[in-house]
């Protein structure tokens, strides 16, 4: 196993997310698996974000909804809360499955690392959701949502692999997959402050932008 580790080309390790020093430990192995949960979770969140407002445009139901006696801000808040509930539910289920599983292999000291790794799913989802939400509120119409969410997430994912192999630190700012690096969590037992702050700022910006766009939006007839 360790031989396999040393002979694998670094680019491949990067793409597969094999950054952990100690690949043989339970949390080390898990930190590698988490990447794929992050990938799927990000797609789900981006999809939610892209669809949640634009769906009213593509279905043509915006005319119905926006001529009802509710303000646009309230409509958007309701949508935001609904999406946040779905994301929260995803995370609850994910934690209920993974925490007992990993802890059955690892000692209880691993709990903090595990919590940090798992929470990165929630944060990453929030970033991708906020990005999709803003675009969704601004776009005239998104015919099909999935290409957008897949495109955004895989581009970020590829950029993340590139950032690892090229060892270019600046690149890490461009992809949310680098904000909560499993490598850093494993080594230091914490997030990197600069990226955690950046993540929070991005989420707030995305949601604020969505409100600004949606309140000013012109609802053209289909």
């Amino acid at each position: 196993m360790s031989n396999c580790w040393t002979i694998s080309p670094p680019a491949m390790k990067a793409i597969l997310g094999m950054q952990a020093e100690n690949f043989a430990s339970a949390t080390g192995f898990y930190s590698f698996c988490v990447l794929y949960a992050l990938l799927l979770g990000s797609i789900q969140a981006a999809n939610l974000g892209f669809a949640c407002v634009s769906k009213e445009m593509t279905l043509g139901t915006a005319d119905f909804l926006l001529t009802k006696p509710v303000s646009r801000a309230r409509i958007l808040t309701a949508k935001l809360l609904a999406c946040l509930c779905i994301i929260a539910a995803t995370n609850v289920v994910y934690n209920l499955v993974t925490v007992p599983l990993v802890l059955s292999f690892a000692d209880s000291g691993a709990l903090k690392t595990l919590a940090l790794l798992n929470a990165s799913l929630l944060f990453l989802q929030l970033i991708f959701f906020a990005a999709g939400f803003a675009v969704s509120a601004a776009a005239k119409k998104i015919k099909s949502v999935l290409p957008y969410s897949l495109g955004l997430v895989f581009m970020s994912f590829a950029l993340s692999a590139f950032a690892v192999t090229s060892k270019e630190d600046k690149l890490r700012y461009l992809t949310p997959f680098q904000y909560f690096s499993a490598e850093h969590i494993m080594a230091n037992g914490s997030y990197e402050t600069r990226f955690a702050v950046l993540a929070a700022v991005l989420v707030c910006l995305g949601i604020a932008a969505a409100y600004l766009f949606f309140i000013k939006k012109q609802i053209r007839s289909r």
Binding site: L59, T61, D63, F64, T67, P69, V70, S71, S221, R222
Partner: peptide
């Protein structure tokens, strides 16, 4: 929103 309470609208094409 205040106006909408008192207005009924039938669009040319209905989508639901």
């Amino acid at each position: 929103p205040e106006i909408a309470k008192r207005v009924g609208y039938l669009p040319g094409e209905v989508f639901y």
